[in-house]
Design a protein around this nucleic acid. Sequence first.
DNA 1: GGCGGAGTACGATGTTTATCGAACGATAGC
DNA 2: GCTATCGTTCGATAAACATCGTACTCCGCC
Lengths: 138, 138
Amino acid sequence: MSTYAGQGMAAAATARLVEPPSVREEADPLSHPAAHEIALAAVLHALSDPMRLRIVAALAVEDKRTCKSFNLPVTKSTCTHHFRVLREAGVIRQRLEGTTRLNSLRREDLEARFPGLLDSVLRAAGVARGGSGEAGVP
Amino acid sequence: MSTYAGQGMAAAATARLVEPPSVREEADPLSHPAAHEIALAAVLHALSDPMRLRIVAALAVEDKRTCKSFNLPVTKSTCTHHFRVLREAGVIRQRLEGTTRLNSLRREDLEARFPGLLDSVLRAAGVARGGSGEAGVP
DNA sequence: GGCGGAGTACGATGTTTATCGAACGATAGC
DNA sequence: GCTATCGTTCGATAAACATCGTACTCCGCC
């Protein structure tokens, strides 16, 4: 498979600011690609895994959720792996709130970058109106 | 990565019919998933590879092409691998014509199965009107 | 200050994937 | 029948990927 951001890639800077959380999203140490840096192949790769597709479908229904709230059928370290793939592909945005990460879809960035792509994937996954594919709603 | 149709999977039946080629597409021994069997994750996986995305983008511009006609920068065995992934995901249809395979997009099947998905991916790849992403046209 | 929870980093394992070369089969043309 | 072409299969390699357990950090709460 083509090399994508994944395990072994340089981790996000771990320096901690003294500011309280949610001062500004940019204050969080998690790195996110700029909208123009989002690569189509990385987005499609991120969405091609059933676990990650499930995460994205759930976020489409209810945004701003913590990692734990998805109740994924894998261990915490695997969850961390999947959320990182989604974040580094530019599909989700994560920001720190205390000990949790609030995850949300980068809907506007993705729509600007690849118009209609996210919506068509979500429809295909059975989210939103007219969905007839696999059940993706948690 | 999740298990998909790929290397090692049961090959298409190798029985040969005595009928001349292109009598009917169904006479070709290549197996294609029925439209309702096309899985979203497999389609996204197939399209997440830059080489396969290039193939699909080229077919969007000019359908019914032979494997060789794409002039892909990989060996013939790797080409065979990629075309098989696309066919088994249900993205392309292949039919035999002499020593060649004619490849074409399963546009209608994909549109019926996942409305808008292929078009949005092609736009994102820079094919068709309004495309502004990476150059995908050969 | 201690405890619990959320999530991470690290290292490991097993599987999947993309790549290739060599040998081969099928077809077309002569 | 021979040759050339297209494409395949097989086996191999290296890299990528999903998975996990362990130990850890950080934060919130008491």
